[in-house]
Design a protein around this nucleic acid. Sequence first.
DNA 1: AATGAATGAGCTTTCATTCAT
DNA 2: GATGAATGAAAGCTCATTCAT
Lengths: 226, 226, 226, 226
Amino acid sequence: MTRWANALPSRAEQSDMKRKAIIREAARVFNKRGSHGTTLDDVADRLGVTKAALYRYVDNKNDLLVGCHEEAMDIANEQLGIGEREGRNGLEKIRIGMAGYLRIMIGDMGVPVLVLEENALAEGTAGPIIALRDAFEKRLRGLVEEGIRDGSILPVNPKLAVFMLLGALNWVTKWYSPEGAWTPEQASSAMIELATRAFAAEPDALASELHRSITPFNAPRQKRKR
Amino acid sequence: MTRWANALPSRAEQSDMKRKAIIREAARVFNKRGSHGTTLDDVADRLGVTKAALYRYVDNKNDLLVGCHEEAMDIANEQLGIGEREGRNGLEKIRIGMAGYLRIMIGDMGVPVLVLEENALAEGTAGPIIALRDAFEKRLRGLVEEGIRDGSILPVNPKLAVFMLLGALNWVTKWYSPEGAWTPEQASSAMIELATRAFAAEPDALASELHRSITPFNAPRQKRKR
Amino acid sequence: MTRWANALPSRAEQSDMKRKAIIREAARVFNKRGSHGTTLDDVADRLGVTKAALYRYVDNKNDLLVGCHEEAMDIANEQLGIGEREGRNGLEKIRIGMAGYLRIMIGDMGVPVLVLEENALAEGTAGPIIALRDAFEKRLRGLVEEGIRDGSILPVNPKLAVFMLLGALNWVTKWYSPEGAWTPEQASSAMIELATRAFAAEPDALASELHRSITPFNAPRQKRKR
Amino acid sequence: MTRWANALPSRAEQSDMKRKAIIREAARVFNKRGSHGTTLDDVADRLGVTKAALYRYVDNKNDLLVGCHEEAMDIANEQLGIGEREGRNGLEKIRIGMAGYLRIMIGDMGVPVLVLEENALAEGTAGPIIALRDAFEKRLRGLVEEGIRDGSILPVNPKLAVFMLLGALNWVTKWYSPEGAWTPEQASSAMIELATRAFAAEPDALASELHRSITPFNAPRQKRKR
DNA sequence: AATGAATGAGCTTTCATTCAT
DNA sequence: GATGAATGAAAGCTCATTCAT
């Protein structure tokens, strides 16, 4: 016998959804102010609960931070997987994968990717996260090398190329604001097109409307301090 | 009568040098761990003094943070000035200026540039710093527009181009390590060459040796946690 | 359904009572050692809690100090109001009002009145407190003038008379000890009788038993040092 | 052979004068803000020297505090001695002695008398000071008793009378300002006349001009906080 | 499940004290 | 004699974490 014809999520599912919501909200704030600059009260406030309530779903602040990184890496890997399936060469795979990553990253419902801060993770917990991140970067480097081999990407130092790309993309969380003039789709496709052109073997002109219509706009900046 | 033939700096000069040293060291740590994640003990330890000693040269932690940003913007503007004088078109001006900026930023004796963290600056002090940063970004955008006009740069959204470039460059402090295989000069010129190729009107192949000799290397990563 | 037939104070009421208790205890220590000489640990120790617990009920040390002054002025005004209603002339009004004030001030459960220390209040917070105190002194001066008019008080400089009276009364917290030989009632009525005799138009002999039985006693003094 | 015909104070005398000056200035500030609320920098600033310079003349802050109390008790005893020689009965002796004490206490060049704060003196040093103060109070009580015997003072509890008197007088440092309308002489004689009237056997009307001309005036109050 | 309350550890800042110059 | 510099010990305040309700 099922209650409410399964329209209600089960207890366990609800709990899981809440943990996800906490992680998503935390990642957003961590991204803006750094994990050290963010208190659990900050996170709880945004969720409309008290700090103590968070501890039902998260072991401690470090666990929350780990969760953020894991979630981010999951999404990144998933999107990169899509790119690998859909792209026809190294460059395309990167473009598709990272565009998806970036779109989710800054999209309203998405999980903002978190920049790995040195020393922010507790003693024993950094290892697995670093391994995840290194694996992701390696996978990305592999696509760069594939692109070099298939001629879609210029001979380039793959490590440097990946760093350049990640820098440009991760930086987006610092300046992008949903209240600005650009939709997540516009911003991410224009940014990907631009950044990957740096190592494209046969760079074209930029096709995104953001580049063709060079209208001034207002990107929101830093505001004030508490 | 002069002592030591004026080889010794005067007391006031020494004091000034110490303040500079504090700011430089602080910026380095702030960059790695974020300003909230850095304690004044961290900074003092690296300088071999006690926390209290810092207070002779700095009003408080926020003042130190402000000092870091000011110093960074000074250097950035100075280097951009050099680029403007020496470059023959918009693209060259950006390349020369930002290469200098990046080289100093990661050079051992240099002043690491600090990423502006949201909410990290105290109530009244954020304004002037944000103004400085905005002015710098505007100046950079001006060079992009100049490059578009003189044909050295592709039609591109200047704001997006500047964000891309700054993201790629500021990211360098996250992964660059002086103990790694690359000198600051190598890393910065290779990175600049790569990143600016994204909007160069006539992109060439990459000339830096870093790109031609695609040797794997080990960039140091995260180490331990407190 | 009510628990314990409402015999238990609600959470909000308990919270309010705790804040009151903190203020009362703080005022006692502030009076003895001055606010600068008192640490929040001192206050917390006396209440059997930790320093951090105070911060649930008080914004900061200055807020606590302000709270003490407000509470004290409330009581002073309240008692003076009683004096004004019950006394038949200026002198009697002062005697009744200030006797009540003094009795509460040194009574065990009472709220010790706090001497306003110069510069002890933070930047913006001194104004309202000073205004309260000035208003109280003015009210007291008004009663002196009333007494002069109705013949109960000698022609005297009202300002000086009020200063004299307040000096004698506020001083009591410095020497009075509940462990001594005098009850709060004895001490306060004898002191009031004596001090107001200074400006009484027709001074009688002193009626309090404290004055008739001139027994030596031991007032406790300074004890220890940190 | 004497230098400068002894017009110059000797080295030792100069040193002694400086110590006196430090103590005098310190007492003034201690009186206003309490000893805990006063830093050695405060004292040094008022003297136009650096904090470190004080240590040539004073062992430490506690020594300075002790010095203040000793100086104050010296003056108090000296003035009381004058009263004892010149007064014809107990009341007159108190009036003359305490008027001198008060005049010096608030006079511009005088040594402000310091209120003994509980716990302000270091572990072993409180004893002698307390003994000095107790001796002084006892001496004062003796004069009250003498006055009772010779008929100049009403039967009164001597301890209470002394507390009342000292309270009224010590309070003066809280409100008296040299910039106000009253000279030290006016203020002290009017205050003494008023306060001692409380226990005078045959109280007269108040003779001081301050009492006869009941003009409003502006006594300066608390100002602001740093 | 969630909250208010309490705590201990840590951080920024101040200050008495010492020392080399 | 006096000063700038440095230090260690506190004090005010914050915050992650726990617990009773």
